[in-house]
Nucleic acid binder design. Structure first.
Length: 258
DNA sequence: ATGGTAGGTGGCCTA
């Protein structure tokens, strides 16, 4: 199974980049974030033409997550099953694809340390962990893929000095991310490339960050141990960040042996 | 020169 995650920063604005990318890379399952579409506005036809069935959880202006699969799409669900009420934002959607339980997640950005949205971000990680405990099995095949808005280590940003007082790198965010991993999920990229620095998945549009190679590794494919053990090739598709009207994120692609 | 880009929406907010 070739699985990819990509924060497209508006699927409406990005469809003309996403369609040829799907045809070229040919992932079996794609987790999308920041569709910025209402539920009914998802371009199902464009994906069906490429052989993908999709589940979309969207609200309109912001957020919005989807899973597209050409290996089937069963038991779809939106939001959390932690018994703590509905998340006001459309940030997580679930589906089972060829026996693998898949989540596409868009973790809150946080905006600023100490901001209400920062507390919401930390709480959101807690809800994700609670959901996993409630309805998932770490001994099964589970993958949680998406934009986590956390750089797990200092070496996952281009220069830690540039992130003083910033979100994405604070200890509480990293601990919240580690608590999710601690349920039984492996950071597949870091396991495969334990010594690699300077490979990122996001580059700010401003200040020519991409061309200066000044990015952050904040998009992750987390997999339970049995699934992570079957991870083969792992690639950040930097080509998708180049050219006309790119997203500010590049896709992360992971091949899992069956 | 203390900025800058992009996407949404609607006359600013989010990233």
């Amino acid at each position: 199974m070739r699985l990819a995650t990509w924060n497209v920063n508006s699927l409406r604005a990005r469809l003309e980049r996403v369609v040829p990318w799907l045809a070229g890379v040919a992932p079996d399952v794609v987790c999308l974030q920041e569709t910025k579409l209402a539920g009914d506005d998802f371009p199902h036809r464009a994906f069906e033409a490429l052989g993908y069935d999709c589940v979309h959880h969207g609200e309109g202006r912001w957020n919005g997550v989807a899973i597209c699969s050409r290996l089937g799409l069963e038991d779809t669900a939106a939001g959390f099953a932690d018994g703590a009420g509905e998340d006001p934002d459309a940030r997580i959607v679930w589906a089972t694809c060829a026996g693998v339980r898949v989540a596409s997640v868009y973790v809150p950005n946080g905006r600023a340390v100490g901001h209400d949205h920062y507390r919401y971000k930390l709480a959101w990680f807690g809800r994700l962990r609670a959901h996993l405990e409630a309805v998932c099995d770490p001994a099964g095949d589970v993958v949680v893929a998406g934009d986590f808005n956390v750089a797990p280590e200092d070496r996952d940003v281009w220069a830690i000095e540039a992130f003083a007082e910033s979100t994405h790198v604070t200890q509480p965010e990293r601990e919240a991310w580690q608590a999710v991993c601690g349920w039984g999920l492996v950071d597949t990229f870091r396991r495969r490339y334990p010594g690699v620095d300077g490979l990122y998945t996001f580059w700010d549009y401003q200040a020519g960050r991409f061309h200066k190679r000044q990015g952050m590794r904040i998009d992750h494919v987390l997999a339970t141990e049995p699934l992570a053990a079957r991870a083969g090739g792992i690639v950040v598709d930097r080509n998708a960040r180049k050219g006309t009207k790119p997203s500010d994120h590049a896709p992360l692609v992971v091949d899992f042996a069956r």
